[in-house]
Amino acid sequence: MSTKTKQFNEIIKAEAKNLNFYYGDFHALKGLDFKVSEKKVTALIGPSGCGKTTFLRCFNRMHDLYPNNRYEGEILMYPDEINIVGDNIDPIEVRMRISMVFQKPNPFPKTIYENVAYGLRVRGIRGKDIIDERVEKSLRGAALWDEVKDRLHEHAFNMSGGQQQRLCIARALATDPEILLFDEPTSALDPIATSKVEELIVELKKVLTILIVTHNMQQAARISDYTAFMYVGELVEFGDTDTIFTAPTQKLTEEYITGRFG
């Protein structure tokens, strides 16, 4: 792997060190070393099956939901330097701090208000005033407040796809995560909804660290500060987004971003 970044003078929020991941016998991630800068957007790109989503899902231990999955190595989260894929770390503790927005909008069968309040209720937060305030703040944070403030108690399924996805972002924001993971968050959305979500991601990096998997290279170029190119479970190249898209050092990266495969 080649690395050419200005990361050395930034605060590192998380760091993968020789991370390996196995689906049963299948070796899906091969010795990844990778740094995530705080309050920046880091994009993971690569052809289908390259392991970018697998890698993303390591960050909030989604793989623990299925049997026979195994992590090796570490992903350290700073400042407290816990190994979030360590056997001794409770996945729920990790998910309390690192939240995720999925490819397909997945609101719960509840009202808009209750969807956003979900994470708070799960954490045992009671008190209508606190929850009201956090719901409003999160919906504002997800640029959804003005559209839904008069119908907070309507069912979330009545919203459009783009609104549902921003609702899922609001839901993730409500609990003040340190890192927010996005797994191709716009692949199910139309261009207008997509640009809203993209603007939102750029806005959100002021307050938190973002990791995003995307199939759309223009999207990575538009919104990310750093880009990692992955191929068959390995990290091929990592660097400033500008550098990766204008002067990649690896031939594979160049072929991929110029559309010769993928």
Binding site: N60, M62, L65, I92, R95, M96, S99, M100, F102, Q103, K104, N106, P107, F108, Y118, G119, V122, R123, C168, R171, A172, T175
Partner: peptide, 18 residues
């Protein structure tokens, strides 16, 4: 119930029971 609904809940830090 589709898996992505479950994952949405777990991603919020919910337990199995919740």
């Amino acid at each position: 119930v589709p898996m992505h609904i479950r994952e949405g809940s777990y991603a919020m830090g919910a337990t199995k029971l919740q």
